[in-house]
């Protein structure tokens, strides 16, 4: 293997130790149990989405058939397979948020950012995603951005947030 190819490996250093910590939570013969955290961590350090090469590397590391990794990576909604924005606005689309105005929030975000749900701004900075109930209905309408929840959303709140991120 050429040194360039070796350098492109993602499960190394800090990423490797983070995945290893999860592996140690499960019985020694159950490395596959760490596939979900491994996918999350790898996605996080790879620009927010997974490629076949990345999934294959996870399969190799966890001693799983690649197809078993693809199955998991395409089943769960948090894994991405296309480029997303550096800031991915995951807006709750479910009932309690609908009752309190999520349609207006999504429409405002689309107008403010100039992209539709599922699209990325040309500078790669922002994207909008509709997600199902995030379990914070008391703060509806709400969304997730990175690891944080943003609740009781208003246009003013979003303006302030976007300005800070721009």
């Amino acid at each position: 293997m050429s040194s360039t190819a070796k350098n492109t490996k993602i499960i190394t250093g800090d990423v490797k130790s983070r995945i290893d910590r999860w592996i140690s939570n499960y019985p020694a013969d159950q490395r596959q149990s760490a596939v979900m955290p491994a996918l999350r961590i790898v996605q996080e350090v790879s620009g927010g989405y997974l490629t076949t090469e990345l999934m294959d590397e996870i399969a190799d590391y966890l001693e799983m058939p690649p197809i078993a990794v693809y199955e998991v990576a395409t089943f769960y909604g948090n894994y991405e397979h296309q480029p997303v924005g550096e800031f991915k606005f995951c807006v709750c689309n479910s009932i309690s948020c609908m009752l309190r105005g999520k349609d207006d929030i999504i429409a405002y975000l689309e107008k403010r950012l100039g992209v539709k749900v599922g699209e990325v701004t040309p500078d790669g900075k922002f994207s909008i995603k509709k997600v199902e109930c995030l379990g914070a209905c008391g703060g509806a309408p709400m969304m997730q951005l990175g690891k944080d929840y943003h609740e009781n959303l208003t246009e003013e709140y979003l303006d302030k947030l976007i300005t800070e991120l721009e």
Partner: peptide, 10 residues
């Protein structure tokens, strides 16, 4: 005790 994190599947 340990935690297992889901990934978006009701």
């Amino acid at each position: 005790l340990y935690t297992h994190l889901g990934a978006g599947a009701y």
